[in-house]
Design a protein around this nucleic acid. Sequence first.
DNA 1: CGTGGTTTTGAAATGATTCAAGCGGAGTGG
DNA 2: CCACTCCGCTTGAATCATTTCAAAACCACG
Lengths: 250, 250
Amino acid sequence: MPVPTNSDLAAAPAIEPLKVACASCNLRELCLPVGLNAGEIDRLDGLVSNRRSVTRGEHLFRNGERFEALYAVRTGFFKTCVGSEDGRDQVTGFQMAGELLGLDGISSDRHHCDAVALEDSSVCVIAYSQLEDLSREFTSLQHSFHKIMSREIVRDHGVMLLLGNMRAEERLAAFLLNLTQRLQARGFSPSALVLRMTREEIGSYLGLKLETVSRTFSKFQDDGLLEVKQRQLRILNQAGLQALVNNSRC
Amino acid sequence: MPVPTNSDLAAAPAIEPLKVACASCNLRELCLPVGLNAGEIDRLDGLVSNRRSVTRGEHLFRNGERFEALYAVRTGFFKTCVGSEDGRDQVTGFQMAGELLGLDGISSDRHHCDAVALEDSSVCVIAYSQLEDLSREFTSLQHSFHKIMSREIVRDHGVMLLLGNMRAEERLAAFLLNLTQRLQARGFSPSALVLRMTREEIGSYLGLKLETVSRTFSKFQDDGLLEVKQRQLRILNQAGLQALVNNSRC
DNA sequence: CGTGGTTTTGAAATGATTCAAGCGGAGTGG
DNA sequence: CCACTCCGCTTGAATCATTTCAAAACCACG
């Protein structure tokens, strides 16, 4: 099976230049429109009309900027990071197609993190005030939006568990399983993947130094769990990774 | 100045047995009703009529239980924790008066963590479906609720930064400053406090072992930052703690 | 006044980091 | 097309922070 790239998820621009309505979007089951009927999706489309391209390395938004919209990843891959007064920063997540960016901004009308594209990407711009208006009209949209926010909270708690309790190998194994699971939900191979982020970014997310990430990749390869060629990965023993995550030390 | 206990926040039950309406609650500026006008608060009261007492050590809800309501802490103190398949668990937060519990449950109609009272406590029960209904009616309630969820996400990202980047002393200093700041917002002394949780629970929250927490308390005391008598703390040098958090190593 | 849970403290062990060097691949310009 | 360079990655060895194990002290409680 050839390894698909994330951009395969997008319709080829030349062929289908502007057909980017929620109703025809193959992400609608993963994105905000889940559970909406056709008429509701049409209305949602009304406020998601605006799209934006973000090239690799570019910021979608920055900490401190005024918050006005949420962004749904259409194609590509992002990271979000928060920084402290002194120079430290922490990657708080990696977002792929169908996932929402900017939820942190609602709290104070300012973004509280940076969102950076890790590859050329495109997003749907969802004007937040209009989303609030529409979700007062449609129970299903309101509910779906609340679920998405709540899911982010649950995800964050999982990361806390990872950062607070797991050792390097367990963290990396959990990270890889999470990544492949999300890719699989988007129709990609569960075993072959291309990392869009550096070892340092993985390390920042997992609370490890890049050298530790690299060493752990090598160890997984030695143990026959993984085949690592730079950013090309192949999972050889998914159950083995899962066992690492489950058993603290056995 | 005498050290107030958290329960001073509640009206003495004998004197004011059932006057527990949002409109007359001294937590309304910290809780869900922020920004609501009198009429709206009255309506909110309609769905917050139900109260519940939770004694020390008792669970308010457990991971896996059906989610039906949010809980606003009226008096007392809670912890929330998530656990992995194997026995590890991670304290994800400590909640005091005015803070909301249960937001994680919205994502899948099941609670994803345990909430345990760390002292005898009482909560307002907020039927979630009714809250959704009412927040379709009142923009201000809708907005306030969204802000609360978003604030939780921002808080979680801050904890990730702490767990991913800081060393033991920085973590504990950040934790103490956060705690005193929240207590101060509730009218308590910014310098004297009584911990409601064990060293182990602090450690779980901060990704440290209880011995490390204890040692770090001792070190802070030796350094003149803190006076530690078991769970009684007095902050002697707040700026010193703040400096610890800001400067990674200088 | 004992009892159990919590906390403190010490000493040894461990896992991750730091520092340092070398490798490799992608992209650039001659 | 090749050599060069840069950036990301790998690997080793020494160091360091935190954990682990163990013992004792302390406090609240019945």
